[in-house]
Amino acid sequence: MSLVLPSELVVDRFLPTVRTMLAERLAQRGMTQEEIAANLGVTQAAVSKYVSGDGGGDDRFRDDPETTATVDRIADGLSSGEMDGYDALAELLSLVRSLEDRGPICELHEEEMPALRGLGCDLCVRGLDPDVRAERDVLANVRTAARTIASTPGMAAFVPNVGTNVGMALPDASDGTDVAAIPGRIYAMSGRIEIPANPEFGASQHVATAILAATAIDPDRRGAINVATDDALLEAGRARGIDPLEFDADYEDRGAHLLNRFDDRGEVPRLAYHRGAFGIEPATYVFGSTGADAAALLEELLEDAT
């Protein structure tokens, strides 16, 4: 993975655009090219290029409302004398910090480093915050699990009509926003597994409910996958020494019901299933320490079952 610093994009893409925008606006406000050059810290020849429209720049910044508003504010302040170079610099630094926080600079950074996409990257805002590292690790784990599911032979036959999903919770997760899953669920189409998007936190209430019930009993059971209930799959589990737990499909609060069933068992089983009810498809949850762990177990069980 090539390393591109966000600051490089600020220098190469943001500053040339903002200088051009400022030069254009200062000229419109009656400043001479010499005065503009002095304010921007560039040569008069550069200002002439900016004002003539040859300065180039990135439309992503030109069209950004926050950038436009800041440039107009600086141009007004410099041309009226109400703002000096220090004030203008403070405005620009504040703008850069804002644009790095999921703004155009962040967007450009993800284009330059595609590996950052889908990680919920907060590098510029929070740096090496351990919480960010934990989020990155969970998102990466769910991506790995999704790839395992997509490449598992015979998986399409075990995807419910409503789709399947794989999720993983952060340590000490308290609600669904602490569980990462695939937005829109995973579907089988023409015998293939379709992964519609990169994982996100809060993307699946269904699988998150099961995972949160599991972590309440066993904090180390942080991953789960839902698939269609199938006797061959359950038998494959029993052959591996797993005792599947059956629970009711027709319930008002699935999370509370699962929590009670796990508590009665005294543990979170690797497999928990129900046989369905009116309007409810039969479903089986495969649990693991992580999303990838659950996917690996599912892959083994399907190999034995098919």
Rank of each mutant, 00 (worst) to 15 (best):
D59G: 10
L123D: 06
G120I: 08
R117E: 10
L123R: 15
T68E: 15
P65T: 12
A75R: 06
S79W: 08
R60T: 05
K49R: 15
D72A: 11
E91N: 01
D64E: 12
P65I: 06
R102L: 06
S80R: 08
S94E: 15
D101H: 09
D101Q: 07
T68F: 04
P104V: 06
L89Q: 15
S98T: 11
E111D: 11
G118N: 05
F61V: 03
R102W: 11
H109Y: 08
D72E: 15
D63T: 12
S94H: 08
Y50D: 03
S98E: 08
G118R: 04
S80P: 06
D122K: 15
G55Q: 04
L93V: 10
A115G: 07
V51W: 05
S98F: 07
R60V: 00
P114H: 13
Y50Q: 02
L78H: 00
G57F: 09
L108M: 07
G81D: 04
M83H: 03
G120Q: 08
K49Q: 15
D64Y: 02
Y86I: 15
A69W: 00
L116A: 01
L119F: 13
L108S: 00
G103I: 14
A88Y: 02
R60D: 04
G81P: 04
I74C: 04
D72F: 04
V125F: 07
A88N: 01
G120R: 10
R102G: 06
P114R: 12
